[in-house]
């Protein structure tokens, strides 16, 4: 690739991992944009050393008691009407019978 890009090695690795593909013109834009976006994302890196628990569920330790969070279990067959099931498998309409 003839694109002049400092991060080309990293970009190629990311492209491979993400199962994507870019045209040469897109790669040029990508190089510029990724440099800029990394400047933005680097601001968050300063927080990595803080001794704080990561927050994955926005309501952890907030909604008490936690049993009030919806945990009602439903069977997959309650979600799907009978005409969409064949021998206990779900039919995908655009894949035919």
């Amino acid at each position: 690739m003839n694109v002049n890009c400092n991060d080309m090695e990293l970009i190629n690795k990311l492209i491979e991992l993400s199962r994507l593909n870019f045209s040469e013109e897109e790669i040029e834009r990508l190089c510029q944009d990724i440099n800029k976006i990394r400047v933005l994302l680097n601001q968050v890196s300063t927080l990595s050393k803080l001794n704080i628990k990561p927050l994955y569920n926005v309501w952890d330790n907030i909604l008490i008691p936690p049993v009030k969070i919806g945990i009602e279990k439903i069977d997959i067959y309650d979600l799907i009407s009978n005409d969409r099931i064949y021998q206990k498998k779900v039919k995908i309409p655009w894949r035919g019978e």
Partner: peptide, 11 residues
């Protein structure tokens, strides 16, 4: 440095 740091920032 990125995703985990961001979840800390979110807290």
């Amino acid at each position: 440095d990125y995703y985990i740091a961001a979840t800390k920032g979110r807290r």
